[in-house]
Computed example of a mutant assay.
Amino acid sequence: MSNKFRSAKWLEKNGFAPQVYLFRNIESGQVVYSQLPHLNNYQIKQQFKRPNWENKKPTKRRDIWQIMAVADFESFDKAVVAYNGLVELRYMRDVTKRKEAESMRKRNSDGNIWYSAQFRPSYSQESIADLSAVVDEFKFKTKIYWEDIWRKGDDKYWNLDLAQHLEFPQKILVDRSVILNELRENSRISKFKRNSKD
């Protein structure tokens, strides 16, 4: 059912919120962007166009993915544009500008981009930089909810007139779907209030 791209109209009609979800792989550090509060094979296939031995195509096994951030936009159209922007930046880094991206990645003493237990922090750092770039490029006001606020990095890398940073309303000691549902409902309520004022 969810194995395809979703339009702004479809997301609104089906009770979702104008959000983009960033899921991180706790084993590898890889990040997958999603229009929905869960992962599926479509997103993995779409976002890992040229997997290799350093950046293998991940599985969608639920136990290795954790929600890292939820970006809440002012409209469904903006959320779709932001999602497409993130996917396009990933494609550029992995395909069209691969050599430039490789040259900028921090490496360990052996010249590899992974650290303990094959973990690659570069991937989550790049996804956060891409989110900052998308918000700034399109001038989208957004609230970004983080699993841990330190993940956003230094404020100097963000346009703080556009991006408001918050932590998840509760720590992820409960099922993450509870938190994502709460964020979705809050977003839908605030969007309804904005629309009723117009």
Score class of each variant (00 low, 15 high):
residue 98 R to I: 09
residue 187 S to G: 08
residue 187 S to K: 05
residue 162 L to K: 03
residue 168 F to W: 06
residue 163 A to Q: 02
residue 5 F to C: 01
residue 133 A to V: 09
residue 52 N to I: 05
residue 182 E to P: 00
residue 39 L to N: 00
residue 117 A to K: 14
residue 128 I to Y: 03
residue 161 D to H: 10
residue 73 F to C: 05
residue 116 S to C: 08
residue 140 F to T: 06
residue 143 K to G: 05
residue 120 R to W: 00
residue 50 R to Q: 13
residue 132 S to K: 14
residue 49 K to F: 06
residue 170 Q to H: 13
residue 22 L to V: 03
residue 14 N to F: 02
residue 169 P to C: 04
residue 66 Q to Y: 07
residue 24 R to Q: 12
residue 117 A to Y: 12
residue 109 S to Y: 12
residue 20 V to W: 01
residue 160 L to H: 02
residue 142 T to N: 07
residue 175 D to H: 13
residue 138 F to M: 05
residue 27 E to M: 10
residue 128 I to N: 00
residue 111 G to D: 03
residue 130 D to P: 04
residue 169 P to H: 05
residue 16 F to M: 09
residue 125 Q to E: 15
residue 197 K to F: 10
residue 19 Q to I: 07
residue 97 K to I: 03
residue 184 R to F: 03
residue 88 E to C: 04
residue 17 A to I: 08
residue 151 R to N: 12
residue 108 N to C: 05
residue 157 Y to L: 09
residue 192 F to E: 13
residue 80 V to I: 15
residue 85 G to N: 07
residue 28 S to G: 03
residue 136 D to N: 14
residue 54 E to P: 00
residue 22 L to H: 07
residue 79 A to K: 07
residue 186 N to K: 15
residue 144 I to K: 06
residue 97 K to F: 10
residue 162 L to S: 02
residue 37 P to F: 05
residue 85 G to Q: 01
residue 171 K to W: 06
residue 107 R to K: 15
residue 12 E to H: 10
residue 75 S to K: 05
residue 179 I to C: 03
residue 89 L to W: 02
residue 43 Q to F: 03
residue 55 N to R: 15
residue 40 N to A: 01
residue 15 G to A: 06
residue 108 N to L: 03
residue 6 R to N: 13
residue 177 S to A: 12
residue 63 D to E: 14
residue 158 W to M: 00
residue 9 K to V: 13
residue 137 E to H: 14
residue 45 K to T: 13
residue 131 L to H: 01
residue 64 I to E: 10
residue 156 K to L: 09
residue 139 K to D: 12
residue 160 L to W: 00
residue 68 M to H: 12
residue 166 L to Q: 11
residue 145 Y to F: 15
residue 142 T to M: 09
residue 105 R to I: 13
residue 115 Y to L: 08
residue 81 V to K: 12
residue 178 V to M: 08
residue 151 R to T: 08
residue 85 G to H: 07
residue 185 E to S: 11
residue 164 Q to Y: 08
residue 162 L to I: 04
residue 193 K to H: 11
residue 7 S to F: 01
residue 126 E to V: 03
residue 101 A to E: 14
residue 122 S to P: 01
residue 114 W to M: 02
residue 195 N to A: 13
residue 175 D to M: 09
residue 50 R to I: 06
residue 36 L to Q: 11
residue 140 F to G: 02
residue 35 Q to Y: 07
residue 22 L to G: 10
residue 76 F to H: 11
residue 128 I to F: 09
residue 132 S to P: 03
residue 1 M to L: 10
residue 137 E to M: 13
residue 87 V to N: 07
residue 49 K to V: 14
residue 134 V to S: 01
residue 18 P to Q: 02
residue 140 F to L: 07
residue 95 V to N: 05
residue 159 N to P: 02
residue 60 K to N: 12
residue 18 P to R: 04
residue 167 E to D: 11
residue 192 F to C: 06
residue 8 A to E: 04
residue 100 E to D: 15
residue 161 D to N: 15
residue 130 D to N: 13
residue 21 Y to P: 01
residue 183 L to D: 02
residue 144 I to W: 05
